[in-house]
Design a protein around this nucleic acid. Structure first.
Lengths: 355, 355
DNA sequence: ACCGTCCCTGCAATCGGTTGCGCACTGGGA
DNA sequence: TCCCAGTGCGCAACCGATTGCAGGGACGGT
């Protein structure tokens, strides 16, 4: 049995394969990659020997000489939330399909940690890097590694430096602004005018969304107080206290930074006796699976997460192969209207309980 | 500006650092790792040069010679669900803290894919491997790589080969059986006797839980039909059709394979007009964050996910350092009683909507 | 002035593949 | 019979670090 194999024979190397096939290392190496210079019988013999010996090439040695590791680095804030987890999962799958391994580094929205991760990627000599969200600016990230061979996935437009326009290459964005606009339009159409935004402080993405809300409201001629529900300058909102603030000064509709926050707030509001959507309509952002299973189901802007990860990986791989910087892409988002924004009028018709 | 740096000077190597410091590569190498044989002035000079040149060592070269890559492989079914995402996140963090990088490979509960991932890990010459869940047996996994330097995390006791007892080393388990027992005890205490289990087919873990349910029911002298809600032999349940089956033959309580399924079923049942917990109590398993925010909040068995990932990483690192196989550990789980199993009696007192 | 110790460094081998270049052998044409 | 092109392989350098071993220099003892 393999478990208590008495022969801890050292790892078999190309040397061993070559010897068994009766050829040199060079020939063995070439045979394994189907170099046309090697005759068929020889090639077969080598391959047979490789299988026989259960030969597994050493990636380090190969990468050293070939100057190409076939590893991608994925810098992402956190794997534990479904939003980023989904992106990471699809990125990893697509990368693997393209013949690349993935090293993940979680940056936890911390600039120092993110820099460390980039350094690790450099040490590992990754062939390409994808930066998802994060807090450092694109320009800083670019200064830490080869700017080509990097791609930035900004589902929420964080990172955007001051002068960073949509036209810059290597960016994969989602059209948050129009998502926000769709939300506001929907809320206004269903009769809400007292609309508030609530989101964590410190994150660029939250600021971006807040501003988009303000613009959209202005379009409808509605005023909006930015500081209605103050949030800490850095860090995440705690649902219960925030819900208390909201309950004390109840708007007609609440636009939340993301689905997680929306779901947490709906829960906290329920404890306070505030009904959704009867007392207040609630909207999220992201479109995570749980937004579809909440009670009431959450109206939200669905971001194509899988597409985002897949596209990031394939664009990056293309960039590596071609040597060209990947083009900028803005992915469309879609408003999913669900129970949490049902208007009083449609409640009778769109009740929850029937097929 | 770094972006359009006209000098694409090749990567700086140890050679360059040594030259700038006026020493040999050997000395430079030793100075950087604080070898006591190197004098302080020399050491400082080398370090200064390294910083000045922004030297980043090449992990491939180092790993090749040192026969140690400081990389761990994490084989996990899927990163996109919060359950495994949480484990992966804490594993990665702990590994990083211990000086190890992590390559993730998602196995998607597919044996072939899992084998591929193990091969990739071998190619990368990882120092250790953690296998989380998965479908291949422990013994098979062990045959694909060095059995020491592997650790198995089985939050749900999948993988267990026929003769695999809890005493085997390198296992991190959770005490699912007692979790299930706690569930059943709680349900019986709150007056339910018609208790059903529903879970995906094909997964060992689901079978384990189903059997645990049966044992616990038997303890209470309650009969149980295993095939009450048939599930496909392989693959996941689709919530809507399953909910229809359940609604047509409503038990007093429903124990679900995991939280995801429970939440999905609660949603589907709501559409059918079935009320939880009034018409049927629902219990999940795992303790993902969303189980605490659902309406009604889900009673579930809370698995220490973060602890699981952290422990896996630290045990693995210890095993690598010491050369000893890590000990088996069984982590306790905890029943979190929430709204979804509220009994009719306690409903008056524990109503949802007031402070 | 000579020799033995320490210290501090450098030489060179090594890890395990990849790859430029050239050699040996075969066969056909003159 | 001799030459030359073509085919199939092997030699050896190389990637960028780590590390065993030995050598050079300073210094103290006699």
């Amino acid at each position: 049995m393999a478990l208590d194999d008495p022969t801890p024979h050292r790892r078999v190397g190309l040397e061993d394969v070559a010897r068994m096939a009766g050829v040199s290392r060079s020939t063995a190496s070439r045979a394994l990659v189907d170099d046309p210079r090697i005759s068929e019988p020889t090639r077969d013999a080598v391959k047979a020997a490789a299988v026989e010996l259960r030969y597994v090439p050493n990636a380090a040695a190969r990468g050293l000489r070939a100057r190409r590791t076939r590893i991608l680095g994925l810098l992402i804030p956190d794997l534990s939330d479904p939003f980023h987890g989904q992106i990471a999962a699809s990125f990893e799958q697509e990368a693997l399909a393209g013949g690349y391994r993935v090293i993940v580094g979680t940056g936890m929205q911390d600039a120092t940690l993110e820099r460390d991760v980039l350094r690790v990627f450099t040490e590992q000599a990754v062939d390409g890097i994808a930066v998802v969200s994060g807090v450092m600016t694109i320009d800083e990230a670019r200064s830490h590694a080869r700017p080509d061979r990097m791609i930035f996935v900004l589902p929420d437009q964080r990172l955007m430096g001051p002068d960073t326009g949509l036209a810059k290459p290597s960016l994969i964005l989602t059209d948050d602004a129009s998502g926000v606009e769709a939300i506001v339009d929907h809320l206004v159409e269903t009769g809400r005018r007292d609309i508030a935004y609530v989101g964590s402080g410190g994150l660029v993405s939250s600021t971006v969304r807040r501003e988009a809300v303000e613009r959209a409201l202005k379009k409808h001629g509605i005023a909006h107080r930015t500081d209605r529900y103050p949030s800490p300058d850095d860090g995440w909102l705690t649902p219960a206290p925030t819900a208390a603030l909201i309950a004390a000064d109840l708007p007609e509709a609440l636009i939340c930074y993301d689905d997680m926050l929306a779901l947490a707030l709906m829960d906290a509001l329920r404890v306070l006796g505030v009904r959704v959507p009867d007392d207040v309509a609630v909207v999220g952002f992201d479109g995570i699976p749980f937004a579809e299973m909440s009670n009431p189901r959450l109206t939200t802007v669905v971001t194509p997460l899988t597409e985002l990860g897949r596209l990031a990986a394939s664009s990056l791989v293309d960039a590596i192969r071609s040597g060209q910087l990947p083009e900028a892409v803005v992915l469309p988002v879609e408003l999913a209207i669900r129970e949490s924004t049902r208007s009083r009028a449609s409640q009778a018709a769109g009740g929850a309980a029937h097929d």
